[in-house]
Each structure stands twice: as C-alpha cells, then as structure tokens.
Design a protein around this nucleic acid. Structure first.
Length: 112
DNA sequence: AGTCTGACTAGTA
DNA sequence: CTACTAGCCAGAC
C-alpha cells in the first residue's frame, strides 16, 4: 500500500471520528496529531481528501471562528453549509452559529 | 533542486 | 482594533 505521510493519515482518522451534528477546527485537529502550527496541513489534507478519502466529513471542519473557509473547495460552495444545516447546525453567512455549542474537541472527546 | 502556495493559528507591534 | 511575522508539511511548477 502506498502510504501517505502519517500526518495526513492521522488527520483523516480524526476527522472521520467527528460525530454527526458536531464540528471541529483545523487547529484542534492539528494539535491532536502533533502541533497546532500544522493547521495549514490539515486544510491541505482535506483539500485532497476528496481523492484520498471521499467519505471524509470535511464539512465538519472549519476554522477557529466557525467560518466555512473551505466551502469553495467542495463540489459546490453551498454543499458544506447545506450538509451542516442538515445535521442540525445553524449556519449563517457561511459561519456557524453557536459554534462553541457544536464544537467537538478531539483532544478532549477523544481522550484515550 | 529550489521556490511558492495553501481549507490555519498565535503572537507581536 | 488592525497588520505583519513565524511555524508547520506536502505538493505543484
């Protein structure tokens, strides 16, 4: 098997564990896999997730303020918001409302 | 082989 | 408050 970097695999593993109706941020994922500074790599990984892991719920990953920064990278810019709303998350102007309420922190919820 | 960019974040001025 | 810098990793040119 041609393995990608462990970093990307870890990102996919965590994102795949995000519960339905919950969201998380690039920084939290990055911190869970090693360093929060690697948040950009998380975004980059998700950008290619559609070819590596198409089942990855990338729509549940947003930036630290709950803004759907990566919406334009989906098949359609509205798909991300539609999916989130479909899971019961309120989104307005491409930003998640009550973000802290839906926030799922892998460093806490995914404690070993 | 070297340079630049990217779905980011935190810190400093 | 806003603006800029540094740090991280992988891929594209």
């Amino acid at each position: 098997m041609d393995e990608k970097s462990n970093f990307m695999e870890s990102v996919y593993a965590i994102v795949a564990r995000i519960p339905k109706g919950r969201v998380t941020t690039y920084g939290h994922i990055a911190q869970a896999v090693g360093s929060k500074k690697s948040a950009r790599i998380v975004g980059w990984a998700l950008n290619h997730s559609h070819v590596s892991t198409p089942d990855l719920p990338a729509h549940r990953v947003v930036n630290r303020v709950g803004l759907l920064t990566g919406r334009h990278n989906f098949a359609t810019p509205d798909e991300m918001q539609i999916r989130l709303e479909s899971e019961g998350i309120m989104v307005e102007d491409h930003q998640i409302q009550n973000f802290s309420t839906y926030l799922w922190d892998p460093n806490i919820e995914l404690t070993p």
